[in-house]
Design a protein around this nucleic acid. Structure first.
Length: 466
DNA sequence: CTATGTAAACAAC
DNA sequence: GTTGTTTACATAG
């Protein structure tokens, strides 16, 4: 696809979105030549005193302020052929977690849009990734990108100053009125959306868990309950289970402090979706409760633990690779445990392939008004992932691995979701991760259109299996 | 029935 | 103790 295809960028750039001005070029993404040097403000994010341009030799430009919004969602795909002809294309607002309300309309014409755009751009978005030395996991200053406190010293709630989500761009049509105070709404916002908003405010839409906690303390009343734990658990739960959030390796080698969490490129355009999705095939509805809840709980815990172990081993492996590659982002994609559990060969316990997060695609959308697409509608979503600015990681063999390759068959018209009706549902007492998009039945093996065989690029994967 | 919140088990760190 | 994953369960609508 042509890099200069205006359709590729028109939605994001014209809307002054936070999407990077990156184009896809088959094997990888690269910086659009339209970038100019205007991004000094970004340097606040990095603790190593190197401005972004110094770190990455990249510069950014402000989006065209004269542009108008919104654009056709379909055209925003900027993809040829069928991808651009998605029949039911809605502006991102259509996928917003909460339906538009008149008071939600934000003013898109202010200069702050530009500054926010600049602020939210970050090198993570770009895959020209030189060796970056970052001493502390949390060296990035949480406060540096947060909105200023109001006169009472309180950080604004998400509704005080909506953080310019793309979705808002769509629904406000870029010429709305400033949003009135809606603090009361916070109580009713689900965790998923609050996390989404928190990440939207962060540079590169990336935060560490601790800072998400802090954001909640400041901006929500979820954390008001000093009983603690519960809300934090919920945040972690949502981060793990909601496909709008993905883990990225922390730029530093300090892994003890955990991953950084980032909004997926998809979520930037489509908004956050229900975390409930993962329970789509859940069998243990009320009334069908297992006779042995305690062992079940144990089983789930064990599965979680095993997933954590696999992830940790994988991370260790990645770290080794990174050490010689000097690329802290080499494993920029979250590795959902279920990618292993469900991708395992049931006998050898060897992962057959990467798959997307089980939560990555869903038919359950927040506030999505007319989404009547059947379950095979991931085309739009998939095409969006092709626009991902950070979907590429490098294999140990220096093969560019598109993120989307985990879920995208080579032919975009192919079905991505394998909703095998013949696939037996897991028994109630045998907890099993629901089938993931692009996943295959454990017993029957991979679909013929298996998009990506992990062994192709990482034959030594078994090293970090248990 | 869905969406959401919460509790909890577990493993790694 | 924290982080991350997963499942179970409760509840509102």
């Amino acid at each position: 696809m042509g890099l200069e295809d205006a359709a590729t960028l028109q939605w994001s750039t014209n809307c002054e979105s936070m999407l990077p001005c990156l184009d896809q070029d088959n094997g990888g993404f690269h910086i659009s030549p339209q970038f100019t040097s205007e991004s000094a403000a970004l340097s606040t994010y990095f603790p190593n005193d190197l401005p972004y341009s110094g770190n990455y030799n990249l510069t950014y430009s402000t989006p065209n302020p004269a542009s108008s919004c919104p654009r056709s969602y379909a055209s925003a795909h900027g993809l040829p052929g069928s991808m651009s002809n998605v029949p039911n294309s809605y502006p991102p607002s259509a996928y917003l977690i909460d339906p538009q309300k008149p008071q939600d309309v934000v003013d898109m014409s202010t200069q702050s849009r530009t500054s926010q755009f600049q602020q939210l751009q970050s090198p993570y978005e770009n895959h020209v990734l030189p060796n970056i030395k970052v001493e502390e996991s949390r060296d990035y200053d949480s406060r540096s990108y947060l909105p200023e406190t109001d006169v009472q010293g309180r950080y604004p709630t998400p509704h005080d100053d909506p953080p310019l989500p793309l979705s808002d761009l769509g629904r406000s049509e870029c010429n709305g009125t400033p949003a009135p105070d809606e603090c009361a709404v916070d109580k009713e916002q689900p965790y998923a959306q609050l996390i989404y908003r928190a990440l939207l405010e962060a540079p590169n839409h990336t935060m560490v868990l601790r800072d998400i906690y802090d954001w909640f303390k400041r901006n929500t009343d979820k954390a008001a309950d000093k009983d603690m734990k519960g809300w934090q658990n919920s945040i972690r739960h949502n981060l793990s289970m909601n496909g709008a959030f993905e883990k990225v390796n922390h730029p530093s080698e300090e892994v003890k402090k955990g991953f950084m969490w980032r909004l997926t490129s998809d979520s930037l355009t489509t908004g956050v979706k229900s975390t409930t999705r993962y329970r789509k095939n859940q069998q243990n509805k009320r009334g069908q409760r297992s006779q042995h809840p305690q062992p079940q709980r144990q089983a789930s815990g064990a599965k979680g633990g095993q997933a954590a172990r696999r992830t940790a081993k994988f991370r260790r492996s990645q770290r080794l690779n990174d050490s010689y590659r000097s690329n802290p982002y080499s494993m920029s994609r979250s590795v959902p445990a279920s990618a292993y559990s469900s991708g395992y060969d049931s006998n050898s316990d060897i992962p057959i392939a990467y798959t997307a997060s089980p939560c990555y695609n869903s038919e359950v959308d927040f506030g999505e008004p007319t989404k009547k697409d059947d379950f095979g509608s991931p085309l739009a979503r998939s095409s969006l992932s092709l626009l991902s600015s950070r979907s590429y990681s490098r294999s140990p063999h220096d093969v560019l691995i598109p993120d989307s390759a985990f879920v995208l068959p080579s032919d975009p018209s192919e079905t991505l979701f394998y909703q095998e009706s013949s696939t037996p549902s897991p028994p109630a007492d045998d907890p099993l991760t629901p089938p993931s998009p692009g996943e295959w039945d454990v017993d029957t093996g991979p679909p013929t259109s298996t998009p990506f065989i992990y062994d192709d690029i990482h034959p030594n994967y078994s090293e970090f299996l248990g």
